[in-house]
């Protein structure tokens, strides 16, 4: 089975979020980039498990500039045979998805995996867009996936529950918690990652459909009101009369 795993970089979860250039750009100063957790913990690890059980090939793909190769190497350290970097700044999800779809079309994969969303833009957009561009079925927010020949059996979250579904390959799946367990790369993996093939592919022309014009921060909270732990009637009264939430 030939599997393509889409990875994106995202700021380390403890990063301080701030903006520069008149609040139009994310301030990367001092920010450490990691592999987006959903892509790494679930999509990539499950792909590796499937390969370990059934054979095949796992390719990592990312749309980004040369500076993003460090993050791609981090993903290679966990596993995967090779990686592809589409050489472009991923201006929006549509742009990134169309680049990946183009690569997938020419190279033919049985399975394309993404994380359920990135933790910076939280769009949940890329997987569905790739699926539509490839005219393939898409299972989003899958929490379990088993492969049996050309049939995938998956569990996916639906509004207020879980559904067991089947699709035929080729297909696109977005992966969430439950799918696999995080793997910590070992020294051998890190060494091997340095020499694994990382192919750079030129981007195709794609319209940018959306623009992040600027960013704002939430209003700071006013000071927390302390309530005596023995007086929960007072808390209820405040939630009703002051906060008006019950």
């Amino acid at each position: 089975m030939k599997i393509l795993v889409c990875i994106s970089k995202s700021p380390d979860t403890t990063s301080k979020i701030s903006f520069t250039e008149n609040s139009t750009k994310f301030d990367e100063n001092g920010v450490q980039y990691i592999v987006n957790p959903y892509d790494e913990w679930y999509a990539l690890v499950r792909a590796l498990e499937i390969k370990e059980a059934n054979g095949g090939n796992v390719t990592i793909i990312s749309v980004g500039s040369a500076g993003d190769e460090a993050v791609i190497r981090k993903a290679l350290a966990i596993g995967a045979d090779d990686a592809v970097r589409i050489d472009a700044d991923p201006t929006d999800a549509y742009f990134a998805a169309m680049q990946i779809a183009e690569y997938a079309k020419t190279n033919g994969f049985d399975l394309v995996l993404t994380g359920k969303e990135t933790i910076n833009y939280n769009g949940s957009q890329v997987g569905g867009m790739i699926a539509e561009a490839l005219d393939q079925p898409f299972v989003s927010v899958a929490t379990k996936m088993d492969v049996n020949g050309t049939t995938l059996t998956l569990e996916r979250e639906i509004n207020g529950g879980i559904e067991v579904v089947e699709v035929n390959t080729p297909a696109v799946v977005s992966c969430a918690k439950g799918m696999a367990e995080q793997r910590i790369p070992n020294m051998r993996g890190i060494m091997a990652a340095r020499t694994k093939p990382l192919q750079v592919v030129a981007a195709v022309a794609v319209d940018q459909m959306t623009t992040y014009v600027n960013y704002t921060m939430p209003n700071a909270k006013s000071a927390c009101k302390m309530i005596d732990p023995s007086n929960m009637d007072q808390l209820v009264e405040l939630l009703h009369n002051e906060a008006k939430v019950i």
């Binding site: 998805a97 769009g123 569905g128 867009m129 539509e132 979250e157 459909m209 959306t210």
Partner: peptide, 23 residues
């Protein structure tokens, strides 16, 4: 922006060539 939208809205944006704003 629920689990159905997360699957369908991105597909629709490609089909209709529409800009997608999620969340």
């Amino acid at each position: 922006h629920d689990l159905v939208a997360k699957a369908v809205a991105p597909r629709l944006s490609v089909r209709l060539k529409a800009g997608l704003i999620s969340g």
